[in-house]
C-alpha cells in the first residue's frame, strides 16, 4: 500500500506504541499491565509499521529474527526462575531488592519477577511477529 499519509502516521504510531508497551511492562507488577500485554502492544506497533511500509522494512527495523527474539525471551524468563538458586530457594521464587528503602516507603523495588516479565514480553513480541510477518508475506 503506497499512501504517504498512512506511512507518516504509521511511523509515529509505531513509536508511540513501543513507548507505551515499555510503560505497560514496567507498571505491570501491582497494576494492570505486564509482560504479556506489553509484548502484544509492541507487536501491534511493528505490525502497523509492516502494513504501511512492508514487511521487509519492518524486519529491518526489528533488527533481529522474530523467532530468535522469542527464543531469547524464553531464555531470559527461564534465567529469572533459575536465579532463585543463588539464594538457595526453589525454582521461580521471586527475589526482591529495595533500593532506598525507608521506614514508610519501599523505595524502588527491583525483582527477578520483572526479569521474568521482560522475558515474557520478548516471547510474545517474537511469537506474534513471526506469525504476523509470515501471514503478511504469504498474501
Amino acid at each position: 500500500m503506497n499512501s504517504i499519509i498512512l506511512i507518516a502516521g504509521a511511523r509515529l504510531q509505531a513509536v508511540l506504541l513501543l513507548v507505551f508497551s515499555a510503560y505497560m511492562l514496567l507498571r505491570g507488577h501491582n497494576a494492570p499491565g505486564g509482560g504479556f500485554i506489553g509484548g502484544l502492544i509492541a507487536a501491534t506497533g511493528f505490525v502497523v509499521y509492516a502494513i504501511a511500509c512492508g514487511t521487509a522494512d519492518a524486519r529491518k527495523a526489528l533488527r533481529f529474527d522474530p523467532g530468535s527474539i522469542a527464543g531469547a525471551g524464553l531464555g531470559i524468563a527461564l534465567l529469572a526462575g533459575v536465579m532463585a538458586a543463588f539464594w538457595g530457594d526453589a525454582l521461580f521464587t521471586g527475589q526482591w531488592l529495595f533500593i532506598g528503602e525507608t521506614e514508610d516507603s519501599k523505595g524502588i523495588p527491583l525483582s527477578t519477577v520483572l526479569v521474568f516479565d521482560i522475558g515474557v514480553y520478548l516471547v510474545v513480541l517474537g511469537a506474534i511477529l513471526s506469525i504476523a510477518f509470515s501471514l503478511e508475506e504469504a498474501v
Partner: peptide, 13 residues
C-alpha cells in the same frame, strides 16, 4: 525440567 528447556533455547538459536 530446566535442562531440556535450556537445551531447546540454545538449539533454537
Amino acid at each position: 525440567l530446566v535442562i531440556p528447556f535450556v537445551a531447546s533455547i540454545i538449539a533454537y538459536l
